[in-house]
């Protein structure tokens, strides 16, 4: 077969789609007698060139810091740097295991995170089902627009508002509770209350936004299913349990599996802006602990060790979540 150089040029875009790399290499060698790699490079260099800026940033700010985790095995001294600081083996991890509060910190993290995941599934699903029962479009739309709002405000702002309304002396919330004879509660200063306040305020901020996904899933349920159910004598409640919920199941499973990766993310910004030393016992999570150790107390090696432990466990959870999402909900990130 004789193929002219000019033919190949013209059909190049086609061949990119249809021939795998090795075949193209071979074809190029056969056709042009030219080194295949050089030819591919000649054609593809603009693409690789376009990737350079992004790749550079990813390497610099994602991969170089990964090399920095060797600090976890060092007694890091800022003046000596990464290469001058002495290695101390697993001492930082030993310190971590011996640290009196470490069990509590891991427990707090998972306790708050798991409650948030559960509430973050339950509340939006319930609201979506209730909204779906309404027939008037404008009520649905207005409701949604109004309750999305807190999602767009930062935790700095919302924390300011929360501190104010939850204050035991002048806060609105305690005053309302007072009408029912409840004595003022120091929600943000009490270890009994703090984790639940975190969960409740997180739901407050996110539930509206969370309903979007479920509402979309609801619109894709075939209306004839409802008609058939009604024909069989199912009322509103039965329809909800036998038509609506099964119809939402795929998206519920997907959201649940994707959330498994968040088991160690209890919400740094929220807790950091709302906690105080008296509630460390119930509020301190891994991220806030790493922050205090690393940024405030400058124990870089130790903080990195704690962070590394979190990264590894998170890595396992996130991987598990994607595997499950793929297996159970056929979800792939790409």
């Amino acid at each position: 077969m004789r193929v002219y150089y000019s033919d190949v040029e013209i059909f190049e875009p086609l061949s990119e789609q249809t021939f795998p790399l090795t075949a193209r290499l071979q074809l190029n060698i056969e056709v042009n007698g030219m080194n295949g790699l050089t030819r591919i490079w000649k054609r593809e260099w603009p693409l690789h060139f376009m990737l350079i800026p992004g790749l550079f940033l990813v390497l610099l700010f994602s991969y170089v810091p990964m090399a920095g985790i060797i600090m976890a095995f060092q007694k890091y001294v800022p003046n000596k740097g990464l290469f001058g600081s002495p290695f101390i083996g697993m001492k930082n991890f030993q310190l971590l295991i011996d640290y009196p509060d470490i069990g509590r910190i891991f427990f707090n993290t998972m306790f708050i995170a798991v409650m948030k995941i559960a509430a973050g599934l339950f509340v939006p699903i319930t609201i979506a089902i209730l909204l779906n029962e309404l027939r008037r479009e404008w009520i649905k739309r207005t409701f949604q627009t109004l309750v999305y709002l807190p999602h767009f405000m930062s935790w700095v702002l919302l924390s300011g508002i929360l501190v104010d309304i939850l204050s035991p002396s002048s806060g609105i919330f305690n005053q309302v509770l007072g009408w029912f004879g409840v004595k003022p509660i120091f929600f943000l200063g009490s270890n009994d209350w703090f984790p639940y306040v975190m969960v409740a305020s997180d739901v407050w901020k996110e539930f509206g936004f969370g309903t979007i996904v479920y509402l979309a899933a609801l619109t894709s349920i075939n209306p004839s299913l409802y008609e058939a159910a009604a024909m069989d004598g199912a009322g509103r409640i039965k329809q909800t349990f036998y038509v609506t919920l099964p119809g939402m199941m795929p998206i519920i499973v997907l959201m649940l599996t994707l959330n498994i990766g968040n088991v160690l993310n209890a919400g740094f910004e929220q807790i950091f802006n709302l906690y105080s030393p008296p509630v460390y016992e119930s509020a301190d999570i891994i991220d806030t602990f790493v922050y205090r150790m690393g940024v405030q107390q400058a124990q870089f090696g130790f903080a990195t060790a704690v962070g590394l432990l979190k990264s590894i466990v998170s890595f396992l959870f996130v991987s598990l979540s994607y595997v499950l999402a793929y297996r159970l909900a056929n979800y792939r990130i790409f």
């Binding site: 790493v290 690393g294 870089f300 903080a303 990195t304 590394l308």
Partner: peptide, 10 residues
């Protein structure tokens, strides 16, 4: 990810 402290140093 490498975590907060290494990112800061970079």
């Amino acid at each position: 990810s490498g975590g907060l402290v290494p990112l800061y140093l970079v």
